[in-house]
Design a binder for these strands. Structure first.
Length: 818
DNA sequence: AGCACGCCGACT
DNA sequence: GTCGGCGTGCTC
């Protein structure tokens, strides 16, 4: 074997679904340029792949014993694009969420940065000669016409041709064709623009003669000597002529400069000094500050109702963090919430602020990321995936509205950004602040166990009163309107008369929930998903809310032929119609997934409401989050119990959090607010807790019941989801997985590892986007047990033929557990 | 995930 | 006999 003593080795996480890292030999000419965290091009079988260096070794790693290591082909970055601390976090995520490290790292990079080159086939010089000599096979003919062609393109161009792969291999062996590797889509990168720089003043004679030249010089002078050609072209006639002429004289120079793609959602606020903290705020601030200064890991749970002044504490803590030369990360649930936050942070931190959310175009996203990496922007405000931002010297993490479900990613890498943030903070040894008016029971539990330091902001700022909350028992409203009860109708009229705004909340969009055949009870269902279709009046069509399928309302029942199908239930669209009937002159804004396609649509709608361009705002969950509408004095909760029907142990928690948030919308201005809660279960303890606005007693009761039933946070859950396009395959695989799980559970009892296996059963959405779904739940008492059990099951599952035919996904700490 | 290998049935 | 299908296993 190799006797070279100076040989070095690199451990690479390839950006593909490989569940382990691979080792490569570092060629001596690349040795200098290799560092942990840079991307490399490596050979992988017959392909070329991109990966990230996660470790460098002086000696041959034991893990690679008996394998002929291949050399790294090329280095793609001049400096690390993933800092070591972030690699550590990704490693933890890969192992905790059972996901390949390479793919975790890909999620941590702006799209395209983690892509691999495509394999293309092209004629060699001998191949070209052969091709002109004799018009050979269609395959060679095709390759002669095109330059380099991918396998997919060839298959598309020659559908009748069979076994293309094999034929290509034969041609390659004869050296007629070769493989070349190329990135298909342009890699994201900085936006480069051409600018003109003034080096010396042009000859005065020339200046006197030409007006455009004088204008050009004037503009450049005013701008400090350099301006983009794009800008100059707008005002200077004949610009290109003058540029060429002055270039020849050596008076100007055309530079290629990088332009930062700014992307601002929020309105700009005029700069203003930081307000003095109230005594309560100050107490919270002072509890956290030493941990920022000394860099020590400590989770804080900040318990404060909406309007209690959490944001100002965040701002001042971040100010202290950056003043100490460290970076700060602030996570927020979603874009619309971030816009108000963005306005405040922009006002305070200006161009030191980077924002990160799904509404960002790819170019702006790349620029934000690269300026974060370079340390130019050290305050990062973003949604879930901002947990992956490469912030140098990170010194503080804040997770606002930490209970929010949008922190959990629901596909692929199913991570929880709050939990990942806690891990990142603990790895770095820095404080983390979790803020919420209604913390998750998990966090409440930790704070009771003193794992988190609890801080409280009592009351609302300026001592605004809590809104007056009235429960309407909808069982007694049967004779009247089942959508808008009498008290709500009256309150709406009054609010409109007073020139105030109202918010109506319900968690169902569309007009009617479903259509029902009056004679046989048939309900039109989506063929790809096992849900009933929702009627949308504006489009006069039935829609699937899961896959987007649309169809017309059937004229006759396909089951019994009856022609009478009637709509049942109601959604936001129907509420809008009811309000229009009641208040014909009201300006109504509806916010749900039908009116909001792009994240920015919502920002625009919410701004319209804030600027009083609407009287009534109707919406789904999307509007429940902490938006600040000072002029809203009435909040109507149309259906305050739908969440209870969901068979999830967290349904009560989610509902109380949501209702309390919505109720908190009322009366954030000077006026006191009013909340009307319509429900069919006025005596349910979740409703009673909301009425009393008493979150702590709800938590106490809920925790007690969770402990009795051994549910999280007292235990850990994990969901195994089996999906396939064939129903039987899915069911059989799920059954086999169930047997395997029980086998493993029994075996591991000897190793002091106890888990409970629940299921398998068809998932609540038994079919989604034409794929059948079965799931299993694992309950464990510790993380260690869960880790050992799941690793064992997944390892053994690899050699089960039935499981290889399906897709198996793992969801650790799932949000929806039935 | 790709991609190759290898084992089987169906066609020249 | 090969061609072409898909199941199985590996990629440093």
């Amino acid at each position: 074997m190799s006797d070279s003593q100076s040989e070095r080795f690199a451990e690479v996480a390839v950006f593909s679904a490989l569940d382990k890292t691979l080792h490569y030999v570092v060629p001596s000419h690349l040795c200098e340029r290799l560092q942990i965290g840079i991307r490399v091009l490596v050979p992988l079988g017959r392909r070329e792949a991109t990966g990230l260096i996660v470790a460098l070794h002086e000696r041959r790693p034991d893990a690679s014993a008996g394998i002929a290591l291949r050399p790294i082909r090329a280095v793609l970055d001049s400096s690390p694009i993933v800092p070591e601390d972030l690699i550590c976090l990704c490693k933890w995520m890969a192992s905790y969420y059972f996901y390949p490290l390479g793919e975790v790292l890909q999620t941590a990079l702006p799209s395209g940065t983690g892509s691999s080159p495509q394999t293309l086939f092209a004629l060699t010089s001998t191949g070209k000669e052969k091709c002109t000599a004799e018009k050979d096979s269609t395959l060679l003919g095709l390759l002669a016409e095109r330059d380099a062609t991918s396998l997919e393109e060839i298959t598309r161009a020659l559908p009748s041709e069979k076994n293309i792969r094999h034929k290509l291999k034969v041609l390659e062996e004869k050296s007629l064709i070769e493989r070349i590797f190329r990135w298909q889509n342009p890699q994201p990168g900085p936006k480069k623009i051409k600018s003109l720089q003034l080096l010396a003043p042009p000859e005065s004679e020339q200046m006197e003669r030409s007006v455009p030249l004088r204008l050009l010089v004037q503009l450049l002078d005013d701008a400090g000597g350099t301006l983009p050609l794009r800008v100059l072209r707008q005002t200077v006639p004949n610009l290109d002529y003058w540029v060429r002429k002055l270039q020849k004289q050596g008076a100007v120079q055309v530079l290629e400069t990088v332009e930062f793609r700014e992307f601002q959602c929020a309105q700009s606020l005029p700069p203003s000094p930081a307000p003095t903290l109230t005594p309560h705020q100050k107490k919270v601030f002072e509890a956290i500050l030493p941990h920022i200064e000394q860099s020590s890991f400590q989770p804080f749970l900040l318990f404060g109702v909406t309007g209690s002044g959490k944001t100002e504490i965040y701002l001042q803590l971040v100010e202290k963090t950056v003043a100490a030369g460290k970076g700060a990360l602030i996570l927020v649930p979603e874009i619309a919430l971030s816009t108000q936050m963005e306005a405040f942070f922009r006002q305070r931190f200006g161009s030191r602020l980077a924002i990160w959310h799904s509404g960002l175009p790819a170019g702006a996203r790349y620029d934000q990321w690269s300026e974060i990496l370079s340390g130019k922007r050290d305050v990062v405000l973003g949604v879930r995936s901002a947990i992956f931002m490469p912030i140098p010297r990170l010194g503080l993490i804040i997770v606002d509205e930490e209970h929010d479900a949008s922190y959990k990613q629901d596909d692929r890498l199913r991570y929880h950004a709050r939990d990942a943030a806690l891990m990142r903070a603990s790895m770095l040894g820095i404080p983390i602040l979790l803020g919420s008016a209604t913390p998750s029971l998990q966090s409440i539990h930790h704070s009771q166990n003193n794992r988190y330091t609890t801080l409280t902001l009592p009351g609302r700022i300026f001592d605004r009163p809590l809104p007056d909350l009235q429960v309407v028992d909808m069982r007694r409203e049967m004779r009247g309107n089942r959508i808008l009860s009498k008290p709500l109708r009256e309150a709406l009229e009054e609010t409109k008369q007073n020139g105030r705004q109202a918010l109506l909340f319900l968690n169902r969009r569309g007009f009617a929930t479903f259509y029902l055949c009056n004679s046989c009870g048939y309900v039109p269902q989506c063929t790809a998903c096992s849900v009933s279709l929702t009627y949308h009046q504006k489009a006069d069509r039935l829609r699937c809310h899961y896959c987007g399928w649309e169809q017309t309302v059937p004229e006759a029942c396909p089951q019994c032929g009856n022609t009478i199908l009637t709509p049942h239930g109601f959604g936001t669209e129907r509420v809008e119609e009811e309000v229009r009937k009641l208040l014909p002159s009201a300006r109504i804004v509806r916010i749900d997934r039908d009116t909001v396609n792009h994240p920015l649509d919502m920002v625009r709608s919410l701004d319209a409401v804030r600027q009083r361009q609407a009287d009534v705002l109707i919406g789904t969950q999307m509007i429940a989050k902490g938006h600040d509408f000072p002029n809203i004095t009435l909040v109507g909760i149309i259906n305050g119990d739908t969440a209870l029907q969901i068979a999830d142990f967290r349904a009560g928690e989610t509902m109380v959090q949501l209702l309390m948030q919505v109720a908190g919308r009322a009366g954030r201005g000077e006026e006191p607010g009013r909340v009307i809660l319509q429900t069919y279960n006025p005596t349910h303890y979740t409703i009673e807790s909301v009425v009393r606005m008493d979150y702590s007693s709800f938590c106490a009761r809920e925790l007690e019941s969770r402990e009795k039933l051994q549910y999280p946070p007292f235990t850990r859950f994990l969901k195994l989801l089996v999906t396939a396009s064939d129903e039987t395959t899915t069911r059989l695989a799920a059954m086999e997985l169930g047997v395997l799980c029980r086998e493993v559970a029994l075996e591991l009892r000897d190793k002091d590892c106890h888990v409970a296996v629940l299921g398998p059963a068809p998932a609540p959405l038994a079919k989604l986007k034409s794929r059948y779904r079965w799931h299993l739940f694992i309950k464990a008492w510790t993380n260690r047990e869960m880790q050992l059990f799941t690793e064992t099951v997944l390892n053994r599952g690899k050699n089960h033929p039935a499981l290889r035919r399906v897709q198996l996904s793992v969801d650790r700490d799932p949000m929806m557990s039935v």
